[in-house]
């Protein structure tokens, strides 16, 4: 008779290895996507705030097009749709590698960057415009005014919402299961169908998501205490 909750199954053996491999994949997806999304988000925010109308509009179009389509659709598009448009040689090269994870990272990066760019933009807008004007009056260029005067202050306002977006990104990695990326939910489902121990498999996954999410939330709280927003 197997116990009601088989803890050993989660601590040792093949199923344990599968689940841990899934956890590592989920963490890697989060880390890589975050590293790519952050600079992209800042770039998009700057594009939207630039004085050039065409740039403003294209930034706006990017953000709205991405935010208004569910992540599931993004995943399926970047896996089943977009790569088919590539030239044959490049496509075959890509398909021979880890196309599943690549597509997932592209989808997660763009999706997260769209949200983060709005946070960065509102952070920048929270810095009084006179500071930017003063910097320009002293002869700094647009980029230099942003880099040396506005962004250092804006980022302090922006970090807490960015951490909250990272939390969303961490949970969103679970959607990658639909395109065959062997992340945590995928491995939990695999353990379930191999062992019929659904409760244990999903308990492990839930504990990982919850634990990691609490760490991220804790980081946001710590940052706000350590670096409070200064009155402008």
């Amino acid at each position: 008779m197997t116990p009601l909750f088989d803890l050993d199954l989660l601590l040792t053996g093949t199923y344990h290895d599968w689940l841990v491999a899934g956890l590592i994949t989920s963490l890697s997806l989060t880390g890589i996507s975050l590293a790519l999304a952050l600079p992209l988000a800042i770039l998009i925010a700057l594009i939207r705030l630039s004085p050039v109308k065409v740039l403003q509009w294209s930034g706006f179009a990017f953000v709205e097009a991405i935010r208004n389509v569910p992540l599931l659709a993004h995943m399926l598009f970047w896996y089943f749709g977009a790569p088919e448009l590539l030239p044959t040689a490049l496509r075959e090269w890509l398909y021979a590698r880890n196309i599943e994870a690549t597509s997932a990272i592209i989808a997660l990066t763009l999706y997260t960057a769209a949200y983060m760019s709005e946070d960065v933009r509102s952070g920048i807008r929270s810095i009084p415009g006179q500071q930017f004007e003063a910097a320009r009056a002293l002869g700094f260029s647009f980029v230099a005014s942003m880099r040396l005067v506005v962004l250092p202050q804006a980022l302090r306002v922006t970090i807490p919402p960015l951490i909250s977006q990272t939390l969303n990104l961490w949970k969103d990695t679970s959607i990658a299961t639909v395109i065959g990326v062997a992340e945590l939910m995928y491995q939990a489902a695999k353990v379930e169908s191999a062992s019929f121990r659904s409760f244990e498999a999903f308990a492990f996954a839930s504990a990982c998501y919850l634990g990691m999410s609490l760490l991220i939330t804790g980081a946001a709280g710590w940052y706000q205490g350590r670096f409070p927003v200064r009155a402008a």
Partner: peptide, 10 residues
Amino acid sequence: QAFVALQQGK
């Protein structure tokens, strides 16, 4: 979906 992925060469 799995069969489409095969057709696409994945």
